[in-house]
Each structure stands twice: as C-alpha cells, then as structure tokens.
C-alpha cells in the first residue's frame, strides 16, 4: 500500500483571502512581524499500486481531473510506501 500526499496551493499572484484574514488576526494579537500567511489544502490518499512511480503518475492524473483547478492552483505530490 502507498500513501500519496497532495499539497494544493494557489499559484503565485493569485490572492488568498483566507491567508490574508489570518495574517490580519495574527497582527491583531500582537504578532506584528507576520507579513504574509498562505493556506494550503492537503489531501492524503491511501491506495494500492505497483510502485511509487506508477502511484505518482496516477495521482498526477487525479490532480488534473479533479483535485486541483489548473486556473489557480499548483500542486505537489509525495508518495511513501506504508504497511
């Protein structure tokens, strides 16, 4: 079995209102040194597969078809073998 972890983040230049709101709240709390906050979406997928490379290819396909929106998102995929 494999665990694939997909991290979906906004492309550079796309505004992140959630991150900006969190940053403002941190500033309100006195953390005035906080200049930027980014939030990501992380998805763990437990799946069967032949090897790490094949699993990664398949998850890449999942990102293109559903998990990420190519207009605004970049994504990273990490794969590890699990028991």
């Amino acid at each position: 079995m494999y665990k694939a972890t997909v991290i979906i983040k906004l492309k550079k230049g796309v505004l992140n209102p959630e991150g900006r709101t969190i940053q403002r709240a941190l500033n309100f709390l006195g953390f005035n040194n906080v200049k930027e906050v980014q939030t990501y979406k992380m998805i763990d997928i437990i799946m069967e597969g032949e090897n790490e490379e094949k699993v990664k290819e398949e998850v890449e396909e999942m990102c293109k078809k559903l998990l990420a929106n190519p207009v605004i998102h970049d994504y990273e995929i990490k794969v590890e073998k699990i028991e």
């Binding site: 796309v14 505004l15 209102p17 959630e18 900006r20 929106n69 207009v71 605004i72």
Partner: peptide, 15 residues
C-alpha cells in the same frame, strides 16, 4: 469547473 467557459470563481476577497 466543467470547462463550459474560461476562468474560474474562487473565494470572495473579504472571505
């Protein structure tokens, strides 16, 4: 999301 036109709709600026 289905690709009927172009661009996308995402979170409002004021969240």
């Amino acid at each position: 999301e289905a690709g009927f036109s172009k661009g996308t709709l995402t979170n409002n600026l004021n969240a």
